[in-house]
Amino acid sequence: MQPFVIHKGRAATIMLNNIDTDIIIPKQYLKRIERTGFGEFLFDEWRYNDDRTLNPNFELNKQSNNDVSILITGENFGCGSSREHAPWALTDYGFKVIIAGSFADIFYNNAFKNGLLPIRLDKKSRDELSLLSKNAELTVDLENEKVIVGSQEFSFSVEKPLKNKLLLGLDDISLTLKHEDKILAYEAAAK
């Protein structure tokens, strides 16, 4: 996994609560056996008309949003299914950071495993960021846990182990296998 230290990019806002995983990536696209190629189907039902032309009213289809990598959104983002296809679709589309009021537990975990940084900020900060991001790039500094735009700074906090793994781009399984002796001991005791 690529380390995540500082990310600079433009943001789009979809300020709705409870954006669920069926909206992020509808299940008819979950049949692929690869991890890639899901970006095309991100927010599929909102993004496309029935004839697969782009819905011009959808936020991400607006000209001004064609190179965004940060999403600002509402409460309980990513609720619903456990599908990791949701972060795969978001990262494949180009998103690196999701700023929400809160996240569903499984999505939150899945995001970190894919180098996608989920940031929790209160509504007031998100509204301000959303306004400021219209004309400016945001800087997301994971090390210092800050979102910076112009002279404004917004602090967030991330659980330390998740932060460290993301900063270093560490592979979970190799880390766990360092505990092999303890796993073996547990299995022996359980018999």
């Binding site: 990791e84 975990n109 899945n110 182990p161 979970d172 399984i173 766990t176 796993i183």
Partner: peptide, 20 residues
């Protein structure tokens, strides 16, 4: 509880999971 695919791989390989 439900897990994502990276965690599925983790459990397949280690029979364990990191959880808070």
């Amino acid at each position: 509880f439900g897990i994502g695919t990276s965690e599925v791989e983790h459990v397949l390989a280690t029979q364990t999971l990191w959880q808070r």
